[in-house]
């Protein structure tokens, strides 16, 4: 930079001041990150290597014992499996539904007024937080609720189903609810992406005789790829961490059928007071998310 700073006369002072200035602006963030991110992470990693931490006044170093306990605990293994199923199904269906709705709303034959209307309607699930969504679906899926009433009267089912307490279906039900709650993020991001694709590309393809399906696979999809990768990665990370919806709907039950890694940590720490074991599980979640984060950071900072 060629600019001279008039407040400082001595060149050495000026240089020193100038070199540290960017860090000055960053200092509040860095201070907060050290105090509220690095220190807590070091603490939780520390807890995971001690025995009976926080309860015992003289915790003993036990090495990897807590990790072994957690990784051989059938409940934790089940929670890993449940989380994997939940996350993969969510990402896949979010992507399909989000893409389909974005294409529908973006259809050329749709006038601006219905377009705006449907866009708002499709955004609706997004305006409610996990607590409200959990309670709303508890109402809908209550054995005496409207869903059972409609399905029985339409002769789709013969008797009322306990959607949230039947072990065989409850994970699927939670997955469905979370798909319902999360697709608007995809729809709206894809919609923004669609509006950024130059119409020249489609016109050129139409002149070459490309059908709509071919246009979708050869223009739309490749053009949307960066956005799709970003949102799918974020969704992958966020769904892995999902706690509130699961906790409020089933708290991981019945008999661990919907236990997730996050609910396992919460239950182990705050219901069973096994803080060391919970810390070990929390560190495993951290590792999983950081591996995903490496891909995300690489994707976000790549210069093309």
């Amino acid at each position: 930079m060629q600019l001279k700073n008039y407040n400082h006369d001595h060149p050495a002072v000026t240089r020193l001041y100038r070199n540290f200035r960017p860090y000055g602006y960053l200092s509040p963030v860095m201070l907060l990150m050290v105090a509220l991110l690095f220190i807590p992470i070091i603490l939780v990693i520390g807890y995971s290597f001690f025995d009976n931490v926080l309860i015992n006044s003289n915790p003993k170093w036990v090495g990897l014992q807590n990790y072994i306990t957690v990784l051989t605990d059938p409940v934790f293994l089940k929670s890993m499996k449940n989380t994997a199923v939940f996350v993969v199904c969510n990402v896949v269906f979010h992507l399909i539904i989000g893409m389909a709705l974005a294409l529908m709303v973006n259809a050329k034959s749709l006038r601006p007024a219905p377009k705006a209307f449907f866009r708002v309607v499709y955004l609706l699930p997004w305006m409610f937080n996990a607590t409200v969504i959990a309670i709303l679906w508890k109402l809908l899926l209550n054995p005496n609720g409207i869903v059972n009433y409609l399905l029985v009267n339409a002769h789709i089912i013969t008797e009322k189903i306990s959607w949230l307490s039947d072990r065989t279906i409850v994970l699927g039900v939670l997955t469905f609810i979370n798909i319902w709650a999360g697709y608007p993020f995809y729809m709206i991001s894809i919609l923004a992406g669609l509006q950024g694709i130059s119409s020249n590309l489609y016109e050129a393809a139409a002149i070459d005789g490309a059908r709509p399906v071919q246009q979708f696979f050869h223009i739309t999809l490749p053009q949307l790829k960066p956005i799709l990768i970003s949102i799918a990665m974020l969704d992958f990370i966020w769904t892995t961490q999902n706690f509130s919806l699961i906790w409020l709907l089933t708290a991981g039950g019945p008999s661990h059928a919907t236990e997730m890694m996050s609910t396992y940590v919460y239950t182990t720490a705050f219901m069973e007071y096994q803080y060391a074991q919970a810390s070990a599980a929390a560190v495993i979640i951290l590792l999983a998310c950081m591996i995903l984060a490496i891909f995300y950071v690489r994707n976000q900072t790549r210069t093309d």
């Binding site: 960053l26 963030v29 860095m30 990150m33 509220l36 991110l37 220190i39 807590p40 992470i41 603490l43 939780v44 807890y47 926080l54 974020l234 990370i237 892995t240 961490q241 706690f243 996050s262 940590v265 919460y266 720490a269 803080y275 919970a278 810390s279 929390a282 560190v283 979640i285 951290l286 998310c289 950081m290 995903l292 984060a293 490496i294 995300y296 950071v297 976000q300 900072t301």
Partner: peptide, 23 residues
């Protein structure tokens, strides 16, 4: 620093919960 800030978006809240409660 930029990479750290981006990766904080992937930070699981549940992992920080136990040390936060202690602090």
């Amino acid at each position: 620093i930029n990479a750290i800030i981006i990766s904080v978006q992937a930070m699981p809240p549940i992992t920080l919960l136990i040390p936060y409660l202690v602090l």
